[in-house]
Design a protein around this nucleic acid. Structure first.
Lengths: 152, 152
DNA sequence: ACTTGAAGCTGTAGCTGCTACAAGTTTTAC
DNA sequence: GTAAAACTTGTAGCAGCTACAGCTTCAAGT
């Protein structure tokens, strides 16, 4: 059983784990945070265990693990006696994805760098950037770059 | 005026630009592809100009430009007499985003690499990976890694 | 000319991972 | 006791497509 004192409000939990109350409710809805205890008036109250669990979730998300991966990691961390091969596999798989993304992004960077430096600053008609986008022939790599979504 | 022969079907257009008919319709709906001519029966028919425009769009997307950026780039490429400063600005801005993303991803890779290599392969209880995710103290960088979404 | 099957049409819902309302209720502090 | 802050649920929105369902049209073969 978790700690006796279930006195943390959703707002405080959010503050302590650097996220928003909406996100906490979202995690509850999709089932990676357990349903919270409620006050008589129906508000959620949490204990320290929830802080730990949510910290884990947020941290794993920071590492770029998908919510599904986080779900698996959580399930595993709830089974401390099991061997950690699967944890290892998930992490390695993720690492591979990060590495391949890194590869593609750096090709992209080179391509962009090249096209920016080659722009002579004249008319659009003769702009190197527009030219390169118009015609893949101008690219270094023959294959698609694979996009670069979510660069926020 | 574009070419006289508007005889390319949406499927063929999609094939020639390496995307799907749904995507073409989507681009039309959001207004970056002009409304196509229609057969009597209501099917879309395109000319070579549409192939060029869609190629531009897809290629710009491959470079990671957002749809909004693509919209601006298209508007500019339609004005060949204008100076290309703005094109340049968009590309540079994008390059910066790619570079900062690269930075963060490589920090992430190092972190992941470290945690994978340190995993001794025992029980979850003592698994380095779970440990690191649980406690940010174990990380090299003090700040958040910023996520690594969409690594597909 | 007729049939068949592929390809097209519209409209809507789904994906990820939240975020942002609106309209009402509860808690907290004074 | 009251006012403000924080909470509640439910729903819709973001990007950039993708995937249906249920129907229509087109192109090719006979």
């Amino acid at each position: 059983m978790p700690s006796r004192s279930q006195s943390i409000s959703i707002g405080e939990l959010a503050r302590r784990t650097d996220c928003k109350p909406e996100t906490v409710r979202y995690y509850e809805r999709i089932g990676i945070l357990r349903d919270a205890l409620r006050t008589e008036g129906g508000q959620r109250r949490y204990g320290e265990d929830a802080v730990r669990r949510l910290t884990f979730i947020r941290h794993a998300r920071d590492f770029g693990f998908s919510v599904d991966a986080v779900r698996e990691l959580l399930a595993m961390s709830d089974q401390p006696d099991m061997p950690c091969q699967e944890v290892d596999a998930i992490a390695k798989h993720h690492l591979e994805k990060v590495e391949s993304r890194l590869q593609r992004l750096s090709v992209l960077r080179d391509e962009l760098q090249r096209m920016v430096t080659q722009c002579a600053g004249g008319k659009i008609e003769s702009c190197r950037i527009i030219e390169v986008i118009s015609d893949h022939q101008h690219c270094i790599s023959e294959t698609a770059h694979g996009g670069a979504q979510d660069l926020g």
